[in-house]
Amino acid sequence: MTADTGMRAWLLTEEPTSRRHARLAAWYKGWLTLRSNTLAMLGLIVLAFLILVAIFAPLLATHDPFAQDLGQRLLAPGEGGHLFGTDNLGRDIYSRLLYGARISLYIVLLVVMVAPVVGLIVGTVAGYAGGWIDIVLMRVTDIFLAFPRLILALAFVAALGAGIENAVLAISLTAWPPYARIARAETLTIRHADYIHAIRLQGAGPLRVVTRHIWPLCISSLVIRVTLDMAGIILTAAALGFLGLGAQPPSPEWGAMISDGRQYILDSWWVATIPGIAIFTISLAFNLLGDGLRDVLDPKDDNS
């Protein structure tokens, strides 16, 4: 107990004694802010749960997600040992849901690694450089924004070939313009700040200013936007799957599962509803977490 309170005091000190100590203390305070936000914690717990489910899917599944049994098709939830029932080919929906979590998280991870990064680079470079570089980059952004997102993604997938990876790439390529806009807007407010002038007066070049001083301040609003966009990303992936250009059958992608269940929605509601609830849950969890992260990452309203 004393060790615990000692650790706590060490982390909450106003006078850290080393770089590592200061960083750990800042993280701990951020964690405390996040923890005090009940809804954000709920989102975090749900996401952690989903990640665990995705990792341990083979252990948790009761059936093979691909095994068809036409004699057992469209069983209601609870019937014949199927927790969430079966779909039109007699596959266990519960097991497919578990394996589908892997695909959803995979999609989210890949998009997160591409779209915000591209947006951040384009936006901050345009905002900081100004002049013709800004004009060129922002007009390119406008062109991407002017296309309906799904149509552009369709065009990319058609060119690259169907499949999850290409769908993700297509979504990323169509998702970056809003991030570029946000990053540019943030950069424009930051670039004339005195602390940017101050580092320029130390002889820092544009590359250092953008990457070391502007990026850290843009990242918080991008992270929030990303978590709020997750739902849309998952749904776009589902829409591509529905059109036959995303996840290919028999892959248990949640969006594809919904479109499979569409034909039976009147007499077998669970086929479309169960994956729908899963998408709703993961989207809600991301949104709640995004809201909580804003409180943690925004240094401007620190009321200590």
Binding site: A193, D194, Y195, H197, A198, L201, G203, P216, L217
Partner: peptide, 18 residues
């Protein structure tokens, strides 16, 4: 810049918040 340095007016704006 090794010979000439500047101190700004508003100390709330001249230090990087992070």
């Amino acid at each position: 810049y090794r010979k000439v340095q500047m101190v700004f007016q508003d100390p709330y704006a001249s230090l990087h918040p992070r």
